[in-house]
């Protein structure tokens, strides 16, 4: 992690839908290569914030730059420099492993040679060479998720956004997934991740916890536990989330 380089800069981000404030004055910075955990109960406003950071929706107000690009004016460049993976959708089930890789590589304008070379490396790393021409639908969930992550960082983005990437995945695969996250982080890719598993919050360099559209806590897991006098992140989270009034 390079603390001198900030790849996400958010200052006073606000997002309103009519009378409802989904994001209330968020401010934070994320360093290059950092694993940043973005936690919050359902309805706390995580998804809204992620959409803004990915350039999918405009904030109501605030200064936000992602990978050095302004979310108001430079959305195209911004999108080219980020990767995104969610639990719900990542890969085309009816395409083969390689077809998916080729498709995503093509989207980001990688040349045919680069795609082939990187695809070989990727499949080798994941030990998936034998599945190269298998359809995604025939793979176990854990493999799919690992592959989806690798595809999301296939174009070497500055930042990758992971929206609950490990939901429902078995504990062993979940850890293999985190191996990939750590490795990407070491290569300098910033990881922005949401999760419902509180043990995973511990794996993050820093964690922010959102309640009712505000960031109520932001620090290293160790510091947060100390502040809240808690033994684990679960307790920190519960202590904060119980104060929520935003029961939808």
């Amino acid at each position: 992690m390079n603390k001198d380089v900030k790849v996400i800069k958010v200052k006073n981000l606000c997002k309103k839908f009519g009378d409802f404030t989904a994001n209330n004055n968020l401010s934070f910075e994320v360093s290059k290569g950092e694993i940043f955990g973005f936690l919050g109960a359902n309805g706390a406003g995580k998804t809204t914030a992620i959409k803004i950071l990915c350039g999918l929706s405009y904030p109501t107000s605030g200064e936000i730059s992602v990978a050095g690009f302004d979310v108001y004016k430079q959305r195209e460049q911004l999108k080219r420099n980020i990767g995104y993976m969610s639990q719900k959708f990542s890969l085309y089930e009816d395409l083969t492993v390689f077809e998916n890789i080729r498709f995503y590589g093509g989207i980001y304008g990688l040349s045919k040679e680069v795609i082939h070379r990187k695809a070989d490396d990727l499949l080798k790393k994941l030990d998936l060479q034998h599945a190269r021409n298998k359809r995604i639908s025939s793979l176990p969930l854990g493999w799919k998720q690992k592959l989806a992550f690798s595809v999301a960082i296939f174009h070497d983005p500055e930042i990758v956004f992971l929206d609950e990437p490990t939901g429902g995945v078995d504990p062993v695969t979940r850890r293999q997934f985190w191996d990939l996250i750590y490795e990407a982080s070491r290569e300098g890719i910033t990881i922005f991740v949401t999760t419902h598993y509180m043990d995973e919050a511990e794996y993050c360099d820093r964690v922010s916890i959102m309640v009712d559209g505000k960031i109520e806590a932001l620090d290293t897991p160790a510091k947060l536990k100390e502040d809240f006098n808690a033994v684990d992140m679960d307790q920190v989270f519960l202590a904060l989330a119980r104060t929520a009034t935003n029961v939808e």
């Binding site: 359902n42 939901g167 419902h196 519960l238």
Partner: peptide, 13 residues
């Protein structure tokens, strides 16, 4: 069947 999947920690408990 998975009544607590996708439900936050507070609601789960």
């Amino acid at each position: 069947d998975e009544p607590t999947t996708g439900v936050d920690a507070v609601s789960r408990s």
